[in-house]
Design a protein around this nucleic acid. Structure first.
Length: 413
RNA sequence: GUGGGCGUAGCUCAAUCUGGUUAGAGCACAAGAUUGUGGAUCUUGGGGUUGCGGGUUCAAUUCCCGUCGCCCACCCCA
């Protein structure tokens, strides 16, 4: 698990801000849920047979003998919160987004940490029409963040009845070929046959490819409609009929978005339709769709593509440099600091016993854009010297003009 | 869970193969040269249980075993 330190955190703040602006504008509202949940929640939602549940969860028994787990994803928590707080009793449907840390006890590698962060979006209690919106939100947000080389992969796992029939058919078919399948697939055959389609073992490929399941379960008319909408909206995609997500609750249209510049872990976002989750958790039938994206992966891809567009050096920072350690002068500095903060700027006042050289060195080190120098001479003349440390220019500003001056150069008015 | 690689100063590394003075360097940090104008230079300084534990040896950063951590890949996911 990583620490995120000053110098790195600015990128995170930038991305979080982007997400809030984008999804709020799209009518989504933020939800935050506890990191710790009863283990049972994830078993019932993500599925006992999923890799996440049976080998990747941070679980423990708490002091009250309860089985607890640090959330490996957040869709289940959102559903739990919606049911528990009865949010659907006062609204027909919900549009929610979340930002936060998730935990999976996997072996770490490039693009995968045991604590990672996701931004996610859920549309709760809306049918198939919401599929287009959720896919577009995911795709457009990645574009909005500046990501290039995006590939959208789409599949349809079939509606409620189709999925069940398809699983039945696949089980019957693959059972005949059981001897040629790998150990994992033989296990999947019993537990979760769809995941056989997702198998990467070379030996399984001929068996999977020769299965004529697509003839019996062609893409639905609904899926064709969705495709047309995406095309009309200028969102390119690839249909991948073997795309199966690792969480068991998906049942309809599912998708994954990959990006260039990430190496082996190139999935930057993924999601799909899950119409049974609320029932599985004890609620009534509630059709839903959603996606989540990996913040680490998005940030890495943006950096590798050299396309992160944000001000590393914030312009709204003023370093106040008193040159004399007298009570009146320091009080003046404090008053100005308070006024600058009230006007929305960031400022720091350093001790008066620093020499100007020391002040300059420190301000440069810490990346301040402006320095406000207050020495005894200026204090007498009721002015300050404002240096632009980046442009290496300085001007004298009258005491009454300090706030308006900074507002102007920072473009705050 | 499987396979490979790596652990020496805050960071990047050297010395390890071939055991042997006080484990070095660059960067970074601190003080001064410098009483009010810059990221420079010079001088000086603080910093290390060589990941941890055990073994072999007169002697271990170096060789052996174990362990932990990290990195990369598989699996899977974001």
């Amino acid at each position: 698990m990583d620490d995120i330190l000053p110098g790195e955190i600015e990128k995170w703040q930038w991305l979080e801000e982007k997400a809030r602006v984008f999804f709020e504008a799209g009518g989504f509202r933020e939800i935050r849920t506890p990191i710790l949940e009863p283990t049972e929640l994830f078993i019932r939602s993500i599925g006992q047979t999923s890799d996440i549940v049976h080998k990747e969860m941070f679980s423990f028994v708490d002091r009250g003998e309860r089985d607890m787990t640090m959330r490996p994803e957040m869709t289940a928590s959102v559903a739990r919160a919606v049911l528990e707080k009865g949010l659907l009793k006062t609204a027909k449907s919900l549009r929610l987004y979340y930002i936060g840390p998730m935990f999976r006890a996997e072996r770490p590698q490039a693009g995968r940490k045991r604590q990672f962060h996701q931004i996610g979006v859920e549309i709760v209690n809306e049918g198939a029409n919401a599929d287009f919106e959720i896919i577009a939100q995911a795709y457009r947000f990645l574009q909005y963040a500046g990501l290039k080389g995006i590939t959208l992969n789409l599949n349809d796992l079939g509606g409620e009845n189709d999925r069940a029939k398809m699983c039945e058919w696949l089980t019957a078919y693959f059972s005949m070929e059981k001897a040629r399948l790998c150990k994992d697939c033989q296990w999947r055959l019993e537990k979760n046959v769809l995941r056989v389609l997702d198998c990467k073992v070379p030996g399984c490929q001929p068996v999977i490819e020769s299965a004529p399941w697509e003839d019996f379960f062609p893409l639905s008319g609904y899926f064709t409609e969705l495709s047309k909408k995406l095309e009309a909206d200028g969102i390119p995609f690839l249909v991948n009929r073997r795309l199966v997500r690792g969480l068991d609750y998906y049942n309809g249209v599912v998708f994954e978005i990959t990006a260039e510049g990430l190496g082996a872990q190139n999935a930057v976002a993924g999601g799909g339709r899950y119409d049974h989750l609320y029932q599985d958790l004890g609620g009534s039938a509630t059709p839903c769709t959603g996606f989540s994206l990996g913040m680490e992966r998005l940030l890495t891809a943006l950096e590798n593509q050299d396309s992160m567009v944000f001000d590393a050096l914030a312009t709204d920072r003023v370093y106040i440099a008193p040159l004399e350690d007298t009570a009146e002068l320091l009080r003046f500095c404090r008053e100005k600091a308070i006024a600058l903060r009230a006007a929305g700027m960031r400022t720091e006042q350093c001790p008066g016993e620093f020499s100007l050289t020391q002040h300059l060195r420190k301000a440069n080190q810490d990346g301040w854009r402006y320095m406000m120098i207050v020495g005894p001479e200026e204090f007498q003349k009721k002015i300050v010297v404002v240096k632009d440390l980046e442009k290496r220019e300085q001007v004298e500003v009258g005491n009454e003009q300090i706030i308006p001056y900074f507002m102007k150069v920072m473009g705050l008015c």
